[in-house]
Design a protein around this nucleic acid. Structure first.
Lengths: 323, 323
DNA sequence: TTGAAAGCGGTACCAG
DNA sequence: CTGGTACCGCTTTCAA
C-alpha cells in the first residue's frame, strides 16, 4: 500500500480536502471540531505531506543549496560553515542541500530556492556558474570584482583582523614576521595580503611573504617555511590547519615556541587549540558565519527588508604560542 | 516573467509537450529533426525542468538525506563522510540533504527517498526516529541491537583493525598501553573496546582503559590521560582528533614521542598527519566510506540486486610516533 | 513518430 | 465555516 494522501485523510474524517489541508497546517478557517477529526484521522493513517506536490503548488522548494569551494580536502572551517547554514535553515523549516563539489553543480540548482556559498574563488569556473545561475544567492565574504555579484553578503573585516594580529606580534616583540599567504583569488586572500603589505609599509617590522595554495599539504608548507629568512621571530599561518604543520617544522628545527619563534594561525581551528603550546588565532566563528548567511538568504527569499551586506564580528584569541 | 515551462518550449518548437519531454531527456520516440527543434527552443528560452513537478509525477525526489551523529562539534571524520555521500550521490544525479543536527530531523524526512547515517548511537533518540521513519536507510557501521535495523550496511572490521594496531605497538616493544575509549553506545565503540579487552586477555601486554566521551574536548582528554598509570609506554587515542591533545599532554610532561611513549590514533585525521612526529593511525577512509554508503542506498532504491552488507577495507598507517 | 489527455497530491480560490 | 474545483508542470499512457 502506498502512502496515504490528503484525500484519504479527508475521506476518513468526512470533510473536504480543502478543510483537511487547512486543519493540518493549523490555519484558521475550520471549526475546532473539524480540525480535531482531521488531525485524528491523519494520525491513525500515518499521513505525511507529499513534499513534491506541496512544492509544485507553492512554487518553491523550501530548500537551499550550499556550495563550498573546491579543494583537495574539506577544511574544518568549511565543514563548520556548512553545519551552521544547515542548522539555521532547519530552524526555519528549510532544508539544506550540499551541492556536489565534484562534477557539475548546475543540475542541482533547480532543486533549490537559493544558494549560500563562501569564499568565491575567481579561479573556480563552477563558482561562476553557481553565481550566474539566476537564483537568489548569498555569499560569505565579498565576491572579487569581475564576477557576478550576489544578492546578499555577510563579511568579516579581514584587513582589520590581520592588522590586529600583526600588531599583537609587534607588541610582543617580534621584528621579523613570516606570513604564509593563500592565493589572492578570494576576497579574503586579497584582504589579508593587503593588510600584511600595508602593515609592512607602515611599521618598522619586517614582513616576509610565503605563498601557499588554497588548501596546502604538509610538504608544501614545509617548503614555504624553508623560503623564509632564518631570522624570522614569528610566523602567521593563514590557511586553515596550516599552523599545525608549521609547528612541526619549527620543532624539527629545534626552535621553541614561543621563545624562539612565535606562532599564530589566522584561521582558528580545533588543532590550533589542541597544539602545545596552543596557537594564537582569530576565531572566525564559521558556524555562526554560516548561520548568518543562511538567515540572510531566507530573509531575502521572504522579501524581508534587511541590509544586503552584513558584517560578522570575530574574536581574537591570544594563546601561549605568542607569549 | 516566470520561468519557461515545458509547454512554452513545446509551443515554440511547434510540437506536443510529450514529444518535447522525450526530446529533452534524450529518449527515443522522436524524430531527430523534432529533437533538434526542441533542444533549440529550450536553449533559447533557457528552459530548466521544474524539479518539483518531475518529482511529483515520478513519485520520488532524487534526494537522499544524511544524518550525522549529534555532538557538540562536528568531527573531521563525519564531515569527510558527508562529502563522500554527497559526491557519490551527485555522480548519479541525486542530491544530498544534510538533516539538521539541532532540532527535529523528522519534518525533513519527507524530502528524501532514503537516508544515510553513520555510527548510530543508542543514546540518540533522534537517530531512532530516523531509523524508524519507514524510509530506505543505509548505515555506516552496524546498528547496535535493540534499535530498528537498516536496509543496508557498510561496515569496517574494527575488531581486527584495533587488534592489529595493538599488536603493532606490542611488536615495537610496548608493554603497557593506555587506550582512550569512546562510549560503548555505537557498534564501533563496542567493537574497539572488545578488541582491547580481548587483546589484554590474550597477550602479556597490559592494557589500561580510560573512557572519554564521544566528542571530547581538551580538558577531558587531559583528565583521562591523568588516570592512566605513570608507566604506560604507549597510548592509543580512539576518537577523532583526540591524539593531538594527548600529544600536548605528553609534551607538557616532558615525555618524548616515541622514545618515552608511543602514540597512535585510531581515527586518522589531518592533524595526525601534521603533528610532529606524525602519529600512527588507521586511515578509515571516511570519504570513501560515505561514498560506498551512498552508492549502496541508491542501489537499493533502484531495486538492484546487491549485497545488503558490505565491508570496507581500511589502511593502517604506521608513522614515526610509534617507531 | 505524434498528439491528446489523464493524472501525480497538494493549495487556494470560489461560491454557497 | 464549508465543499467543489481549477491548477501547479511534468510524465506517461493511449490512440491515431
Amino acid at each position: 500500500m502506498s502512502r496515504p494522501t490528503l484525500r484519504d485523510v479527508a475521506a476518513r474524517a468526512g470533510v473536504s480536502t480543502a478543510a483537511a489541508s487547512l486543519a493540518l497546517r493549523g490555519l484558521p478557517g475550520v471549526s475546532p471540531s473539524t480540525r480535531d477529526t482531521v488531525l485524528d484521522a491523519a494520525g491513525t493513517l500515518g499521513y505525511v505531506v507529499n513534499v513534491s506536490a506541496r512544492n509544485l503548488r507553492r512554487r518553491r522548494t523550501d530548500t537551499i543549496g550550499i556550495y563550498l569551494p573546491q579543494g583537495t580536502t574539506l577544511q574544518w572551517y568549511y565543514a563548520d560553515f556548512a553545519v551552521g547554514v544547515s542548522n539555521a535553515a532547519g530552524e526555519r523549516g528549510v532544508a539544506a542541500l550540499i551541492l556536489p563539489q565534484h562534477g557539475d553543480p548546475r543540475p542541482f540548482l533547480a532543486h533549490v530556492d537559493g544558494i549560500v556559498t563562501v569564499d568565491v574563488r575567481t579561479t573556480d569556473p563552477l563558482a561562476r556558474a553557481v553565481l550566474g545561475a539566476g537564483r537568489e544567492i548569498v555569499t560569505g565574504e565579498h565576491v572579487p570584482e569581475g564576477q557576478p555579484q550576489p544578492d546578499g553578503i555577510v563579511f568579516v573585516d579581514h584587513e582589520r583582523e590581520m592588522t590586529g594580529l600583526l600588531r599583537h606580534l609587534e607588541q610582543r616583540g617580534s621584528t621579523s614576521i613570516g606570513v604564509l599567504l593563500p592565493p589572492e583569488d578570494t576576497a579574503w586572500g586579497i584582504e589579508v595580503a593587503r593588510a600584511a603589505r600595508r602593515f609592512a609599509a607602515e611599521s618598522t617590522v619586517e614582513v616576509h611573504e610565503a605563498p601557499v595554495s588554497f588548501s596546502p599539504e604538509t610538504e608544501e608548507i614545509q617548503a614555504a617555511c624553508a623560503t623564509l629568512p632564518a631570522g624570522v621571530d614569528a610566523i602567521v599561518a593563514v590557511p586553515d590547519g596550516t599552523a599545525t604543520s608549521v609547528a612541526g617544522v619549527l620543532r624539527s628545527r629545534g626552535q621553541r615556541i614561543p621563545e624562539d619563534v612565535r606562532l599564530a594561525s589566522y584561521t582558528d581551528s580545533q588543532s590550533d587549540r589542541l597544539l602545545d603550546p596552543p596557537v594564537t588565532a582569530i576565531d572566525l566563528r564559521p558556524s555562526e558565519f554560516g548561520a548568518r548567511c543562511g538567515q540572510l538568504l531566507l530573509d531575502l527569499l521572504e522579501g524581508a527588508a534587511v541590509p544586503r551586506e552584513q558584517q560578522l564580528d570575530v574574536e581574537f584569541r591570544p594563546r601561549a604560542a605568542t607569549n
